[in-house]
């Protein structure tokens, strides 16, 4: 069709352009590798120091022991982590009790009920809530929430206690639940709502019976992420919960059935796994001492728990994902 002289120049360019293009690609790969390598390095560090720890303290003693009293100067330490597990569980459960319902209902309001104007004001405010440094929540719990609880509902509450710390962790994680759940609900196609209204459903029935079930995978992921966050939360509990690795007293109930009074758990100081790590790290430790290694064993345990939660979150999201 065309002359040889008019044939287009399709030769691969050899010069600076090609080198530059390759350099860009390499730069992006390096950036991506930094995060991956950091994760791997953290995991290996946790693992190696934990191995050192578990060569001296058996895994069974660590997981089932009832006394936690690491002695930074060495000697006479107990490394039973059950009090820390209990403290972590109490904070997580109480925080979830606050964050999941309030977060879900907030998401339903924002996605289904709020006018565009109300949503445009409220959503950024919620996101600000998520951006407040956690230490501020901690001091708020210590300086306002605990005195308020003491003055009203619980006169016997300790200055440092699990309840106000847990409530603050709960409030802190509301935006996480509401924001991700709201995204999931907003992604439900409008045709489904129309179908519901067309069948004589009320707004409430459409929101709870159609939109929420259709968005359930996103809502469940938000729950799991919020719970992971509460498990790993450090500053609020360090500041407001105190640092006493106590187990609550077991009391004798009716007919001699032993029970734990919730007040003993919530109104008294306690210690979570994260607080225990901060406490150890705050002492004068020499690398390689047993308490130092204990910190990594706790870190590895937390890492394992949150990793499992994230994997479960992904599985749930995939399992219940609906293609509308």
């Amino acid at each position: 069709m065309s002359d040889a002289s008019a044939s287009p120049d399709l030769e691969r360019s050899q010069g600076i352009e090609r080198i530059r293009d390759r350099t860009y690609g390499g730069f992006f790969v390096v950036c991506a590798l930094i995060t991956v390598l950091t994760t791997i390095a953290i995991f290996l560090t946790l693992l190696s120091d934990s191995v050192a720890f578990f060569s001296e303290v058996s895994i069974a003693d660590f997981l089932t022991g009832l006394h936690w009293s690491p002695n930074p100067t060495g000697g006479g330490s107990d490394f039973g982590a059950v009090p820390l597990f209990v403290g972590t569980l109490v904070v997580t459960a109480t925080a979830a009790f606050v964050a999941l319902p309030i977060g879900t209902l907030t998401a339903i309001y924002l996605s289904e009920y709020a006018t565009p104007r109300a949503r445009s004001i409220l959503k950024p405010m919620l996101e600000v809530l998520a951006g407040i440094p956690t230490v501020v929540y901690g001091y708020f719990a210590l300086v306002y929430v605990t005195p308020a609880l003491k003055a009203t509902l619980f006169p016997s509450i300790s200055t440092f206690n699990a309840l106000s710390a847990s409530l603050m962790v709960g409030i802190m994680t509301i935006p996480m639940v509401s924001s991700i759940s709201e995204d999931a609900m907003s992604a439900v196609p409008d045709e489904l709502r129309q179908a519901g209204y067309g069948l004589g459903a009320t707004k409430f029935e459409v929101s709870t019976g159609i939109v929420v079930p259709a968005a359930i995978s996103g809502i469940a992921s938000s729950y799991i992420l919020a719970i992971s966050r509460a498990i790993g939360e450090t500053m609020v509990v360090v500041v407001a919960m105190g640092a006493q690795a106590n187990l609550p007293a077991v009391r004798d109930g009716l007919a001699g059935i032993p029970y734990v009074h919730p007040g003993d758990v919530l109104l008294d100081p306690g210690m979570t796994m994260t607080v225990a790590m901060v406490q150890i790290a705050g002492g004068d430790l020499t690398g390689g001492s047993l308490p130092y290694d204990a910190m990594f064993a706790l870190g590895l345990t937390l890492f394992a728990v949150t990793l499992v939660m994230n994997v479960v979150s992904d599985l749930v999201a995939n399992r219940y994902r609906e293609e509308y």
């Binding site: 045709e191 129309q194 029935e205 259709a214 609906e322």
Partner: peptide, 24 residues
């Protein structure tokens, strides 16, 4: 009642789709 342009069954079972109107 109403039927829409794009088929829009709920992400529920066939039975629950049909029963939805009577239920609400």
């Amino acid at each position: 009642g109403m039927v829409f342009q794009k088929p829009n069954p709920f992400p529920k079972s066939i039975y629950d789709n049909v029963a939805y109107g009577l239920r609400v």
